[in-house]
Write a protein that binds this DNA or RNA. Sequence first.
RNA 1: GCCGAAGUGGCGGAACAGGCAGACGCGCACGACUCAAAAUCGUGUUCCGUAAGGAGUGUGGGUUCGAUUCCCACCUUCGGCACCA
Length: 821
Amino acid sequence: MPIPNYIPAEIEPKWQAKWEADGLYHADIDTSRPKYYALTMLPYPSGDLHIGHWYAMTPSDARARFMRMRGFNVMFPMGFDAFGLPAENAAIKHNIHPKKWTYANIDRMRKQLRSMGAMFDWRREAVSADPEYYRWTQWFFVKLYEAGLAYRKMSPVDWCPHCNTTLAREQVWGEDRHCERCGTPVIKKDLEQWFFKITRYADELLSYDTIDWPERVRTLQTNWIGRSEGASVFFKTEAGDTLEVFTTRPDTLWGATFMVLAPEHPLVDRITTPEQKQQVEEYKFQAARQSDIQREAADKEKTGVFTGGYAINPVNGARIPIWIADYVLMTYGTGAIMAVPAHDERDFAFARKYGLPVVVVVQPEGMPPLDGATMAEAVPAAGTMVNSGPLTGTPGSEAFERIIAYLEAKGTGHRTVNYRLRDWLISRQRYWGAPIPMVYCRDCGVVPVPEDQLPVLLPDDVEWLPTGESPLKLHPTWRFTTCPKCGGPAERETDTMDTFMCSSWYHLRYLSPRYDKGPFDPKEYSYWMPVDLYTGGIEHATMHLIYTRFFHKALRDMGITEGPEPMVMLRNQGMVLGEDSEKMSKSRGNVIAPDDLVRAYGADTVRAYLMFFARWDQGGPWNSSGIEGTARWLRRVWTMISETTGPEAGAQKPAADEQTIRILRRKVHQTLKALTRDFETLEFNTIISGLMELYNEMSKARQAGAAGTPAWDEAIDIYLRMLAPVAPHVSEELWQYTGKPYSIHTQPWPSVDEEAAAQEQITLVVQVNGKVRDRISLPADVSQEGAKSAALESEAVKKLLDGRPARQVIVVPGKLVNVVV
RNA sequence: GCCGAAGUGGCGGAACAGGCAGACGCGCACGACUCAAAAUCGUGUUCCGUAAGGAGUGUGGGUUCGAUUCCCACCUUCGGCACCA
């Protein structure tokens, strides 16, 4: 039988069809084996599968396959995050219905996904725009509402004038505060919107004790949540109102020389005196207008207006003026601050501009005595408290705790924690999303749609003109309904949900995508959850990855889910850039299309090259000639195996000596050991280089006549098993060729023969004063003394010592000897 | 400004616990095969130097017998946040 050529286009579709027909990748509950839930972020069906999808998915697939060979019952599902703005924008642009556009893309992408040869269990596919899916998205909304975690509030919210919708705080990016999707700067609008109380979980979200997530993601989330410890302090105004402020520096309380309120603060009108009224009104109007138009750069000069009112400092009775200024934000803390210009940069700038007094109350060690009248800048450093009544002299290290105790004893303040995190705004004034399942009744008020009436179906016949009004509001009949409570006339909520709501629980729908008694089958949940390894891009660190953790914890508190976290281990891949090192985009013309690559090289080569060309967690620029090297390697492996095994093997005449066999087996088992570790830690680039290196070694052994020996057969067997997760098609084809039983993908991962991997001779590096001067070969079990004397016997050492005695000789067993003169 | 990550040949990168820097691949050079080219195979490839030898992991210092690895300071690049009290 002639040796066939390696033609990926022939073998890849063949095996894909067979695996699918055999249900090779079906994952079912099997309590006899440990489970492993491997999950990779689901794609948005935007049209074509791009190289970024391959980069995220195929190494994740290789890892899942490895775990399967390691004896785990592995589930690796796939689905589509199908609701969202791009579909609607495409609808507007091309006059195609968003549903049609989305489902056509899904069909196309399903085919492309199959060309990867991944071990997706397609029976578990879930599509978030299917009524059977969003029925449960809506059900979760109602559950959150019933638990008091969803509420409706009129507030100034971020609005994208291009997408014509509100956005969550997380979807507003950069200094110019632009829309995450289209880049248009957002504006502020006062709207009645639905929010989820994610802030209730702020503290719990800061704990990562039970999960193995990258430091980077944890830092991003921690900063985003922005916890600060401080104190609430109650000031009394002269009008008799209580003014609560939040401060992280209660130790500077005696230095508060004025107060500042946000212009929108509810007490401003009561505090303002008639003489100041006009000025205050003008400032308020300007501030509101400014936030309405666009936020100016952060470094703009501080402005403010005196209200004419005064407050009393609760610790020293000082009468201090109350100002309003737009550098104080209504959305953080209480919207009011005590200003301590001596020790806060912003307050200092404000005080100098408006001639307000500066009083020093903290004297840092090692600094000349501070003087409020002459200091050129604020001194925020900690130090001994001065001019602070009974607390004068308190050292910096105790100041915080002592002032809190003092405030709590006097009843004028207490310890508080504040967060930067805001509640999650989930209303969207768009069509292509899950309708918010709420009804407004004139008599009963806000009423959730009962469970047996879900889903609230999204109608197909809708005008999706971008008017700024929710398209569902313009539908002639859809919004009119009856109240589930009293049966009277009522109206539906016409906003739809943020798609991040859909993706917060998709990992649960995969468990049982057709289950109709709940969002998921509890039996499947208790077997598969939590997700053991979650892979995806870092760009979701402060969006999807925070939302899904919140979601899980909220459901846990309702008894729907179990355990502290949804995903135990998280790993992020980097990004594949264009050959010009720029982000790939159609306008730059640097897009690499995976379909073209599969046609030219086959999926196995594309998979292997994606794993090889860069560190997976970093990514990097694509290199068209680089992939040739990977293609060459797989062809060589094919040639070597087809020439030395299978029907051709009889032609081989083994002629290898013992030494060759020993070296071959050692390299095989050393590689196996290294690759096992690299698969565990997701270091894909060294997996491929290890396989290339072993090929090179086997090639040498073949020259020395190793082919046809039992050691050779073992090498081929182990080689193919190690190759299987990386290149599933070619390994399956060669596995069959070598006469092994179908399928290689149900084979166990080989085990290391430690004895074979052991090195019997070592190369000892001989250094003189830390510089390599010689290398000597010694038995691996040589004693320290033996290594030392062998090194001192070395010609190179003798020459350099030139008769002088060695001052010190350091022996590192198995590695080197350093002779110090 | 604050927080975080990263700087290694012409390029992507490797070095698992402080012990041979540059594995593996690309590119390049030379050779074999060929009438020739491509493909394929082989050899070489950090820099300086003909060589002996020397230098070398962003820069400067430190710890150590020994530092890409640990510590300090700085420079550069990238990412996030940014009047958050």
